[in-house]
């Protein structure tokens, strides 16, 4: 019963959404090139299934690689900001300014800087776009650690590293995963941004672009749906990790 609700409800929601979409296209009499309808999509998937598979894999691994680097770098910068006031004061405006720059404007910059290094460019963009929430959340998590938490171990002569490992790090995990949920979607957007704006024939973004050049509108919509599915998968992978490592923060309901 519980399982039925957990799976059945979201599936029903998706079906209702698809039905509404189909209905909207039918009622307005939109042709394919204005708005494809869900019933056009299976055909596109069947025709280009091998392109979808390779494209999804390329998008996926570059997103995960960029996110992985963002996790490591973001945690390190967050630690520096969390432990040192000076670093916090110095780095914060820089980070905010950096985050405020629209990442689309960076695509040509990166493309010129690392000319021809498509994989590298894409991973770098996924990293750049997803790094900020992680750094900020780790920094805030560490700097707002109540002094008592530190004192129970410091009064026993524990080193800073021990305090970090035993208290600060686990206590920050819920905030970290909150940020990771935002970052995973951002990294995904970053990857696609490069794939679409800076064409090099790889990933789902490139498939989208080729759909556009060939005026294959159902293919474009099929790519959008594939991107959505991939995004959902990535997001729930993070949720699963959160359950494992920070499940304690979840209170039983009721």
């Amino acid at each position: 019963m519980d399982l039925l609700r957990k799976i059945g409800v979201p599936v029903a929601a998706i079906l209702i959404f698809l039905g509404f979409w189909e209905f909207l296209v039918w009622v307005n009499g939109w042709p394919n090139y204005v708005m494809a309808s869900p019933s056009d999509l299976p055909d596109a998937y069947i025709r280009f299934w091998n392109l979808f598979l390779t494209g999804s894999w390329q998008t996926l691994w570059r997103t995960v690689a960029g996110l992985g680097i963002a996790v490591v770098a973001g945690t390190l910068v967050g630690m520096v900001m969390g432990f040192s006031r000076i670093a916090r004061d110095g780095l914060y405006p820089l980070l905010v300014g950096f985050n405020a720059v629209p990442k689309a404007t960076l695509v040509p910059v990166l493309a010129l800087l690392f000319i021809g290094q498509h994989n590298f460019n894409t991973v770098l963009m996924a990293f750049l776009i997803s790094f900020f929430p992680i750094a900020v959340s780790v920094g805030i998590g560490l700097s707002t650690l109540e002094p008592e938490y530190r004192d129970i171990l410091r009064s026993l002569g524990a080193s800073r590293f021990t305090i970090f490992r035993k208290i600060a790090l686990p206590k920050t995990l819920p905030e970290f995963f909150g940020a990771l949920k935002v970052s995973v979607t951002l990294a995904f957007i970053g990857t696609n941004l490069v794939e679409i704006i800076s064409p090099h024939g790889k990933g789902l973004g490139a498939l989208f672009l080729s759909g556009q050049t060939n005026s294959n509108y159902p293919l474009m919509f099929a790519v959008l749906i594939a991107l959505a599915v991939l995004g959902i998968l990535l997001y729930y992978a993070v949720v699963a990790l959160e359950r494992i490592f920070a499940g304690w923060a979840e209170r039983p309901q009721g």
């Binding site: 109540e146 008592e148 938490y149 129970i152 686990p170 206590k171 920070a246 304690w248 923060a249």
Partner: peptide, 11 residues
Amino acid sequence: MAFQNPVMLEW
């Protein structure tokens, strides 16, 4: 040491 806040490690 013991404080007003019991400072339990929730995890």
